[in-house]
């Protein structure tokens, strides 16, 4: 993450990490999640799901901060994120 200056407590802050889970079969391809993901974690896949829609796929999981925005926004209950526990 880029800052215009480094926060004083930058070293102490733990940014949460998340993993995006996609239930492909439920997706209707509206692209809300891809458009509004603040961290560009996902993109639309070229593949089709069983209903014939393109669905999102994860591009860079390391970018996900588990903000749940995609989960709240998705009209199809097809995407959500879960926290990845901190290692240390």
């Amino acid at each position: 993450m880029k800052y215009w200056r480094d926060p004083l407590d930058l070293g102490a802050i733990q940014v949460s990490k998340g993993r995006v889970i996609i239930i492909e079969g439920r997706c209707k391809g509206c692209e809300f999640c891809v458009t509004y993901c603040p961290r560009n974690v996902i993109q639309m896949s070229k593949a089709f799901n069983i209903k014939g829609y393109h669905f999102p796929e994860v591009v860079d999981e390391s970018m996900c901060v588990n903000c749940h925005f995609c989960e709240s926004l998705c009209p199809e209950f097809a995407i959500f994120s879960v926290a990845i526990p901190e290692k240390n």
Partner: peptide
């Protein structure tokens, strides 16, 4: 599921 709402409909949200 899936529900009847069209792709891009706001009702699901």
């Amino acid at each position: 599921l899936p529900h009847i709402w069209c792709p891009g409909c706001g009702i699901g949200t």
